[in-house]
Design a protein around this nucleic acid. Structure first.
Lengths: 237, 237
DNA sequence: AGCATATCCGGGGTTTACCCCAGCCAATTG
DNA sequence: CAATTGGCTGGGGTAAACCCCGGATATGCT
């Protein structure tokens, strides 16, 4: 039994036919179309393998993985994603248990790669798409990997908050915020005011641009953060 | 004869089988896998209908459409896109001739919608995906539609440039740049310094955030702009 | 012509974002 | 234990971003 979760019908059909052809022993293939549903179905069906699209309504694939692994730690998880965004790799690393079994394939993967990943995870190995190998590399390099503090600050400036607003929200001094931002700029390799020769940068906006380019943040994640933010400010009034 | 262009094999196959089933009279279906190739093939084959993915290597679907329509103004064009980004609608409006025939469908469209769009364009009508109707609305509303000047400034701040750098690049005064930005902020509905009660915003970053959210700009477009920028600065030294 | 709009430019302000420097505390590591 | 690292705090400064105002030009519409 294999459980797949994706909100796009076309992708579900593609994956389902691929699996039924290549893994007839693991039939049937069950389908879910959002994050909450796949968690419920996994609890009942206890499948050995679950495919999760990251971008799904109600509950993201990553959070769904977290809940599934809470109940059934031995479930094999294969994440499907459209992009090699570093945010997701960050989050995954926290969710997956130390010796957890999982795979990560991009949606532009060839059929052979998906089959390969499925075989690997079913037999207890990991399979990581080559396209995100360098991303994982970066998340473990001390000089470029962002700390949680820096990441929080990054999200805030990407939402367009001022230093003052960030300080209030994170219960910090403005100086502390600026300290976080300074080390963030350094890790992103953004030149300071005097050090640039050809082009001058507004570090704040430049940091957002580079981080988005590198997949450290993306729009759908920022939208989540913003809705949390507006909920909090609403609650505090 | 129908020509389709998409760099993703899976999408090509999906579209091709859909067309051969529903439009047997218009066989065969020819395929191209990037923007340059589809322009060349269109010149030779002179198909009445061309499907274009917007995001393609070498040449975007929009620029490909421009070149195809230059040679063969009566070609029917149907754009395929993953997102309802306002940038693309902006650009498209300039490229398509006043009475040009074209369609615009999002990639999450149902099979029925694609068939419907194809019928419409083949018989000389337009077909616009309902999801971008409101976007088109916005591009024609005076209060929210950005002028070219404001759009240029928006791209520059999104790349992380300072007022001074923007002025140098666009051959303007810093005051002129700030004037553009001011009206940009107004159209995006970003509150000024005194006017906000609950949340304070850094207008510059906030503008980038909101514009990205609304699809006025997106990362791949910005990457194009940045490569142009670095070419120019290289040439001027 | 009169009117509105878009754009650029100027003067003269305030606030915010960034700069350098130094020190303190906590947790980790050899 | 010392040594290092990550993080917060502070003083005191510069420059960039934003504010309000008025004025000039050009364009297009009625």
């Amino acid at each position: 039994m294999i459980l797949i979760a994706d909100d796009e019908e076309r992708d579900r059909n593609w994956l389902k036919s691929l699996l039924t052809e290549n893994f007839p022993d693991n039939m049937p293939v069950e389908e879910a179309h959002d994050g909450q549903q796949v968690v419920d179905m996994a609890a009942k069906l206890k499948p050995p393998l679950v495919f999760l699209d990251i971008k799904m309504p109600h509950l993201s694939g990553i959070k769904a993985a977290e809940q599934i692994l809470n109940n059934l730690p031995n479930t094999g998880i294969i994440m499907l994603s459209n992009f090699s965004d570093e945010v997701y790799v960050r989050q995954l690393w926290k969710v997956v248990p130390p010796n957890g079994v999982f795979g990560y394939v991009l949606k532009n993967a060839s059929n052979e790669q998906v089959v390969e990943a499925t075989k690997a995870v079913l037999s207890g190995d990991c399979w990581i798409h080559p396209g995100i190998a360098r991303v994982i590399q970066r998340t473990q390099n001390r000089a470029t990997n962002l700390t949680t503090a820096e990441y929080e600050a990054l999200v805030c400036i990407a939402l367009g908050m001022t230093d003052h607003a960030i300080a209030k929200r994170l219960y910090l001094t403005e100086k502390a915020v600026q300290s976080r931002l300074k080390s963030l700029y350094a890790k992103l390799g953004i030149p300071g005011r005097g050090e640039s020769h050809d082009t001058e940068f507004n570090q704040r906006c430049r940091a957002v641009f580079l981080s988005t380019k590198r997949g450290l943040i993306n729009q759908s994640e920022l939208d989540d953060w913003e809705s949390k933010l507006s909920q909090e400010t609403k609650a505090s009034t």
